[in-house]
Design a protein around this nucleic acid. Structure first.
Lengths: 225, 225
DNA sequence: AAAAAATTTAAGGCTTTTTTAAGGTTGACG
DNA sequence: CGTCAACCTTAAAAAAGCCTTAAATTTTTT
């Protein structure tokens, strides 16, 4: 689950990042409007936390541009307490929610959860693809009684594979979406995890396999394809 | 996906090339403004990374000339950190984005991705020409249930043939666009791959053929033309 | 602080893709 | 009809990409 924070007060930004990182979100932070828009346009985030007052480009502009570019990532606007809320909620700024500074960490987490519930995590719990069940909230992979627990990264990868059936996910894609934008993970990291996942799929006797397509990436397939 | 780097600092140029090559981009590097313009005019690139300070012809001139010649390749300008950003973004230099040196590799990649997303990959998935279907995102070629997987280069070639119906693509063209500008692939490489492709077309009982026109190149045709 | 779990790194083996090379076809042209 | 250049096809060598595993490292839990 990836979050982008666009906030120029570095102290606040860091605090936000910390709160979210503790909850296992992948967090990227940028400090001005230009970067905010660029990163947002990547479309890889599940939520964007957007300050309004920003260098170069304010939060409204960013939200507007994002929507114009068909990026539907939920946006949580951060407003100073003296900004009129109407400005945010009313004006079709593209924001999905707003929050006035200062705020309690719990409030932040609650709002983010609310935003990602309907948007991001379309795929909850028991999946459709494959001949197995995968409970995303407990990271439990199972078939016919037999089950294993996936660790965080295994689960993230499997979720992506399930969420994009019949699509080939490239290693770079997986790296940016599981390890994060600026990680220095290499392709071998992905390979290793794919290998772990395969072993677990095999362990529960699933006949769904993760197929590698050279130079392209990975895809979930049923065994007799 | 092809990238042209126009940068006279050879060390930086090499670093850039390395970063991009790792991400599977095809990269060509030139070191001065004249070459930059020439290469850029070829129109074969999906992005051009353009330094501003260059021998013979600066980045602005190149961008201007390219646009004048109806080359719409997205341009990412590289500016020294003391150059006023307005100069780049404001002045209709033709650039689509800019980045100040020094920069993080991730930033570069993010920007390039952003630029190519909206521009580049116009042709997606199921094609129109021929009596077969070709899903470009999975590299799957099929007809009436029967299907084969193409490997990377086969797919690239077929994409070009499909994208240019009724046009004859010369071997040199194919070499520069599939193998890259400075590859040392010879005509026999193309011949070999054309042969592979034909076999696969035949395998799925397609009656579309890749016809060779002596001394000219290849073209897609329906069998009774 | 020790133990366990998760993640990363590294190395060697395996498979597929890509290149190379050699001999076979084809068709235009004298 | 024979020649030649361009093209075709195929096998096998070379290279690249991927897999797997164990060991090392880091993080989390106890």
């Amino acid at each position: 689950m990836q979050v982008l924070i666009v906030e120029d007060e570095k102290l606040l930004a860091r605090a936000l990042k910390q709160i979210l990182t503790e909850q296992k979100y992948m967090v990227d932070v940028v400090h001005d409007g230009n970067d905010g828009l660029d990163y947002g346009l990547s479309g890889i985030y599940d939520v964007i936390i957007l300050d309004i007052m920003l260098p170069y480009r304010d939060g409204f502009q960013i939200a507007y541009e994002l929507r114009k570019n068909k990026i539907n990532t939920p946006i949580l606007m951060l407003t100073a307490k003296d900004t009129v809320p109407d400005k945010v909620s009313g004006l079709n700024s593209g924001a999905d929610d707003y929050m006035t500074k200062p705020f309690a960490p719990e409030e932040l987490l609650a709002r983010i959860k609310a935003l990602t519930r309907r948007h991001g995590e379309v795929m909850l719990d028991e999946t459709g693809f494959g001949d197995f069940q995968f409970n995303a909230s407990t990271c439990e992979l199972s078939k016919d009684g037999k089950s294993v627990r996936l660790n965080f990264k295994e689960a993230e990868i499997l979720k992506l594979l399930i969420a994009n059936p019949n699509m080939i996910l490239s290693k770079e894609d997986l790296i940016t979406r599981v390890w994060g934008y600026d990680s220095d993970a290499g392709s071998n990291n992905v390979e290793a995890y794919i290998s772990f996942l395969r072993r677990k799929l095999h362990f529960i006797n699933s006949s769904t396999e993760i197929k590698a397509i050279k130079k392209m990436g990975y895809r979930l397939e049923h065994k007799n394809d």
